[in-house]
Amino acid sequence: MNKVMLMGRLTRDPDVRWTQGPEQSAVARYTLAVDRRFQKEGGVTADFIGCVAFGRQAEFAEKYLQKGIKIAITGRIQTGSYTNREGQKVYATDVVVEEQEFVESKGASAARPPKRKTEPETDDDGFMNIPEGVEDEIPFR
């Protein structure tokens, strides 16, 4: 039996790509930082495990997962090898995701910084500043 269960945080946003051909399918890759249960003093505190999701699971990852979010996954270990550009054989081990789910509530994840890089400027009363000359672009008046 080949079954893996992991719980950890994404180290970065998932990298999602689409296959070519008449029936395109999504492939998402991400890394989970999984805390070690026991640690040696001054030693490593987490393992970084590569995960790959296909199809609907990959689409879910693209839509809902982002860096820092805590998830639990189940899947299977898959090993493989390839030859890199230098002619060296490289061995790879990934977890193929079969199920993934959120572990934290929205309230707990709200403490994380937002996904966008910059916050809009606000007045003292908390309303967003609207730049000059955009009145024509506003859908209401």
Rank of each mutant, 00 (worst) to 15 (best):
T79W: 13
A111S: 13
I138T: 12
E119Y: 09
C51M: 01
Q66N: 06
K63H: 07
G43T: 00
Q20I: 10
Q78S: 11
E119C: 01
D123F: 06
D15N: 08
R36D: 00
E23K: 15
Q78I: 14
K89T: 08
V44F: 00
D125F: 02
A72G: 14
S109A: 15
E104P: 02
F54S: 04
L10P: 12
K63L: 07
R37T: 05
T19G: 01
K67I: 09
F60N: 06
K70D: 04
I49E: 13
I138N: 04
P113K: 15
G87F: 08
V34H: 07
G75P: 04
P139T: 03
R141V: 14
I69K: 08
E98P: 04
A61H: 12
V97R: 03
R85D: 12
I69P: 10
A26C: 05
F102S: 05
F60R: 00
V52G: 06
D124F: 02
V90T: 05
E98D: 09
T19L: 06
E121L: 11
T79G: 15
D94F: 11
Y91K: 08
N2D: 15
K89G: 08
S109P: 12
A61Q: 14
W18A: 07
E104Q: 03
L10E: 03
Y82E: 03
T93A: 12
R76T: 11
G21M: 09
A61E: 09
G107L: 10
E104Y: 04
G42I: 03
R29S: 11
G126A: 05
M1P: 15
V34Y: 10
K63Y: 01
S109T: 14
R76V: 11
N129E: 01
V97G: 02
R29T: 14
Y82S: 05
D15P: 02
S25Y: 09
Q78K: 13
V44Q: 15
L32N: 01
I73D: 08
V90H: 13
V44T: 02
Q66D: 10
T19E: 07
R12Y: 06
D124Q: 05
G107I: 07
K115M: 14
